[in-house]
Design a protein around this nucleic acid. Structure first.
Length: 905
RNA sequence: GGGCGGUUAGCUCAGCUGGUUAGAGCGCCUCGCUUACACCGAGGAAGUCGGGGGUUCGAGUCCCUCACCGCCCACCA
């Protein structure tokens, strides 16, 4: 598909033009670092970007679109810079999230986990993800993600499975994986333990009950009806598991009671009163009941004091056999009953509302119950130490750097990682137990041949029914996808990665795990840079969520405005790590920008001088035939290259789009093309000059298309295809070379800036003077000698853009004042102009404008003079600044004089 | 209870290591179908840079402090 100028419609229609482009990239095989169409220098340092594999079950939301856009932008620029680029696509099996989704589907069908059983449930899961999988992959293609599809990986495929088994086996051998009974976060809805990160502290108004425990009479061994100790609790049902009461050692109120015994009601258990510093004497009664099996703090306290740990909750959060009299009751029903029973005994002292944080399951929103379970844990301290070393040494840099503090804090206070999940969808823990309780961990897919302790045959061993936390396999991603544990070519070439890009919300879930496991197993950190993007919020700053109904579907955005528009919208006006509010207006900005570029290109293509063949090979503009306008366009394009490069180096993509928007729209289109129009239609110019003008435009446009391609790949690819190419250009922009900044011409840029200001001034004057913008007016000018050449060179453009005809240049001020009395005065950088007004004389609007300008100038002049008069400033400010102040003062003096002259007429 | 971020034009955001007159887009107002574009062009209005101190010749930019908003971490039952 080659677009000829006459084929280009007036408006860019994304739906029409984006279609087919992705397929062309695919057909050209340019996504893979070693693809057939790659133009990379094989010796250049590879650019490897690591993306979080999206969950296989969910439709992609704007956050995914943002991730894909940023990563694609980075990859495309690196590719154009000639580096072999690896961006490996993948999907995560997301065990708990996937099961949650499937369970709900099953529930609607009247089925459940239990009714299907493990095997059929998993079959059903595979069937389900086969359907969602294609949808997910298609969405990434729609947004233009140039992923190396030949390497698509899934965290449940055999490569990952093998890496998981191997990693766990090694950790076990090294003593970094251990099995123990410990307090875990239990979700009664999901029927599994979850990590600390998956427990969401949720504010809630609960009740704080004060209850009385009776002291046991040391003589009789029976509870004393009158001697009591009051404790406060928000969870009365845990009374059934109480094995102690704690007070502060220095609390004189209870000093005499420490060492005494109280009788726990209902279960009729005698437990000690202990002293411990954890107790806050100002909270509640200053005495706290201790339930070691159902509370994190109490667990620690219980361990310190050797208290028994009595589990009273079953997996479904009902009361178990230990809860005498309440067995089988749901935890909240039990709470109600217990409160009633306490009241009946007269031991319920007080109940009052209490603001508290309650831990809820990130997935199901159920209230989490801490409880004891025997599970597998990863010792994180030595792993975290290696990860920290990488960030502290700067081998891995976090962008933006403020997240380094958060990282440090979390990594230095990290707790051991519970990796067991009582779920089915995921990697089964490769641990086998023999009837004698020996543990055998094996990396073999078929499991161990025998118990490695006692030699019992495999047939007598049973595998752990649990699976791994999803993030265990995700944590291996940077190397498991490259062939680990084998020592592969890929691993040597593409590990460690260059950049890991993701949202700051999964820094601990995922980034931390990759850093720990990568550093440990590979002996080297998995990536050199962590780029964290912010969250995409709705226009009111609210988090987007399906339940709130404020989500924007990326596919819908693409079909209305185009993938380029969506990408632009997501990148423009953002900065690393900062959240953004997404509004449809941003989408329109992107669409309009694509359209602007489209039409500018249409103009350039259509303005080709007849002496250049349609299929002409690209030529550099003839330097000898270039005028001021051409040199200005080239210099500004070079400035754009510099600025865009700087923005990319700074990881500031929002800045890159801002620069390009400004350079393309406000400079190239508004001035470059407008000035070029007069050149191209000027019969007085030589063909050689017109050709130079056109080739200059082509050069600039080509540069802009290349610079913009990483962010807006579709429209730039479509347009670039219609542009003349050099013989050594590839056929597709995606593999074309990233532009090198050409030479800048500071003097030309400065001179043209004055001319632009002059034209603006004339337009402004006539608008304020109430003269139609379309009317041609005589303009008399006085031009300082150093600007005469530029002025004359741009005369036709000035005439056209300022609607100035005749445009008379005078050599002395007397002449201009004499001939142009009564016109509108304009002052720009040393150029003085008088615009002949239809009804001569200084009109009221004109006077107001001049007075305003004079007022501004005078105010600034006063400021400049006082600065120069300030000895402190003159002594201490650097010479450069003082010099600037002098120049400024001189300019302002001249400007004030001229404005006064104009007003005096 | 710690920590981080934000507070700049009506809205969304830029303002790098302090340096002359604080910018952009959208929106708003006034013109305009000028042979790329009305998804457009020309012009314009609009900001005591959250408050208060301080450092400095000079502060939106650095320091202190307060306020409000948001987020993260944390064993007040």
């Amino acid at each position: 598909m080659t677009l000829e100028p006459r084929e280009l419609p007036k408006a860019y229609i994304p739906a029409e033009f984006e279609a087919g482009i992705y397929e062309r990239w695919l057909a050209a095989d340019v996504f893979a670092p070693d693809g057939a169409g790659s133009t990379a220098n094989p010796n250049a340092e590879p650019f490897v970007i690591i993306q979080p594999p999206p969950n296989i079950t969910g439709a992609l939301h704007l956050g995914h679109a943002l991730t894909s856009t940023l990563e694609d932008t980075m990859v495309r620029r690196a590719r154009m810079q000639g580096r072999p680029t690896l961006w490996l696509p993948g999907l995560d099996h997301a065990s708990i999230a996937a099961q949650y989704v499937l369970d709900r589907i099953l529930a609607a069908e009247g089925e459940s986990r239990e009714s299907l059983g493990r095997e059929r449930y998993l079959e059903r899961m595979w069937q389900f993800i086969t359907e969602t999988r294609e949808v997910m992959l298609r969405q990434q293609r729609r947004i233009g993600a140039s992923l190396d599809w030949s390497r698509l990986r899934f965290t449940m495929d055999e490569g990952s499975a093998r890496a998981v088994r191997e990693a766990f086996t090694r950790l076990h051998r090294e003593g970094l994986a251990y099995r123990t009974e410990a307090l875990v976060n239990w979700c009664p809805g999901c029927r599994t333990s979850v990590s600390d990160l998956e427990v969401i502290p949720t504010p809630e108004t609960g009740t704080l009950w004060t209850i009385r425990y009776h002291l046991v009479d040391e003589a009789t061994g029976e509870p004393d009806p009158d001697a009591t100790i009051a404790v406060a609790t928000t969870r009365p049902e845990t009374i059934l598991g109480d094995t102690g009461v704690a007070v502060r050692p220095d609390d004189e109120r209870y000093r005499g009671l420490v060492g005494r015994t109280v009788r726990i009601p209902f279960v009729e258990r005698d437990v000690p009163i202990i002293a411990d510093d954890v107790v806050d004497r100002s909270f509640g009664t200053g005495a706290v009941k201790v339930t070691p099996a159902h509370d994190q703090t109490d667990y620690e306290t219980g361990k310190r004091h050797g208290l028994p740990m009595i589990t009273v909750l079953a997996d479904d959060a009902s009361i178990n056999e230990a809860g005498d009299g309440y067995v089988g009751l749901d935890r909240y029903d039990a709470r109600t009953r217990i409160l009633a029973d306490l009241e009946a005994r007269g031991d319920l002292v007080e109940a009052r509302p209490h603001e508290m944080l309650i831990g809820r399951c990130q997935r199901s929103n159920d209230v989490i119950e801490p409880r004891l379970k025997t599970q597998w844990f990863i010792r994180t301290e030595p792993l975290a130490a290696k990860a920290l070393e990488a960030t502290r040494d700067g081998r891995t840099r976090i962008v933006p750097s403020r997240f380094e503090k958060v990282w440090e804090h979390w990594m230095t206070n990290i707790r051991d990682w519970n990796v067991s999940r009582q779920l089915w969808w995921g990697h089964r823990i490769p641990a086998w137990y023999c009837p004698d309780g020996h543990v055998t961990v094996s990396a073999e897919s078929v499991g161990p041949a025998a118990c490695e302790t006692c030699g019992r045959p495999a047939s007598e061993l049973t595998q752990d029914p649990d699976i791994f936390d999803t993030w265990f396999s995700s944590g291996l991603w940077p190397f498991s996808t490259l062939g680990w544990p084998d020592d592969t070519e890929d691993l040597r070439r593409y590990y460690p990665g260059s950049v890991m890009e993701t949202g700051y919300d999964i820094i601990f879930f995922w980034v931390a795990r990759m850093m720990m496991l990568g550093s440990h197993f590979m002996g080297e950190e998995p990536f050199h840079k962590v780029y964290l993007h912010g969250l995409v919020k709705d226009p009111y700053g609210q988090r987007m969520s399906k339940t709130k109904g404020n989500v924007v579907d990326p596919l819908e955005a693409i079909s209305t405005a185009g993938a380029d528009a969506l990408r632009f919208a997501l990148v423009n006006g953002t900065s690393p790590g900062s959240d953004q509010k997404f509004r449809t207006e941003k989408l329109e900005d992107g669409r309009n920008f694509a359209n602007k570029l489209w039409n500018a290109s249409r103009f350039v293509l259509g303005a080709r001088p007849a002496t250049i063949a349609a299929a002409a090979e690209r030529q550099a503009p003839d330097p000898a035939a270039m005028g001021v306008a051409e040199r200005w366009i080239a210099s500004r394009a070079a400035a754009a290259v510099e600025a865009v490069d700087r923005a990319f180096e700074d990881d500031n993509y929002g800045e890159a789009t801002r620069v390009l928007y400004e350079a393309i729209w406000s400079e190239f289109c508004d001035w470059g093309l407008e000035v070029a129009k007069t050149r191209l239609s000027d019969g007085g110019l030589s063909d050689r000059e017109r050709r130079a003008t056109w080739w200059t435009l082509v050069d600039a446009l080509d540069t802009f298309l290349r610079l913009l391609h990483p962010v807006m790949p579709f429209v730039t690819e479509a347009l670039w295809g219609a542009l003349p190419h050099r013989s050594d250009d590839p056929s597709l922009l995606i593999t074309a070379r990233w532009p090198a900044a050409g030479p800048r011409e500071a003097a030309t840029e400065a001179a043209v800036a004055v001319i632009i200001e002059l034209i603006r001034g004339v337009r402004n004057a006539r608008a304020e003077g109430g003269i139609a913008a379309s009317a041609w007016l005589r303009v008399d000018v006085l031009v300082p000698s150093e600007l005469v050449e530029t002025f004359e060179s741009l005369r036709p453009a000035i005439e056209r853009l300022a609607r100035a005809r005749p445009l008379l240049r005078h050599v002395d001020r007397e002449a201009i004042l004499a001939t142009a009395a009564g016109g509108l005065a304009v002052v720009s950088g040393g150029i003085e102009a008088i615009v002949a007004a239809a009804d001569a004389g200084v009109t009221e609007g004109e006077r107001q404008r001049l007075e305003r300008e004079l007022g501004d100038a005078e105010r600034q002049l006063v400021a400049a003079r006082s600065r120069l008069a300030d000895s402190a400033f003159m002594e201490r400010a650097p010479a450069r600044i003082v010099e600037g102040a002098r120049t400024r003062e001189a300019e302002l003096t001249e400007r004030v004089e001229r404005l006064q002259e104009s007003l005096a007429r």
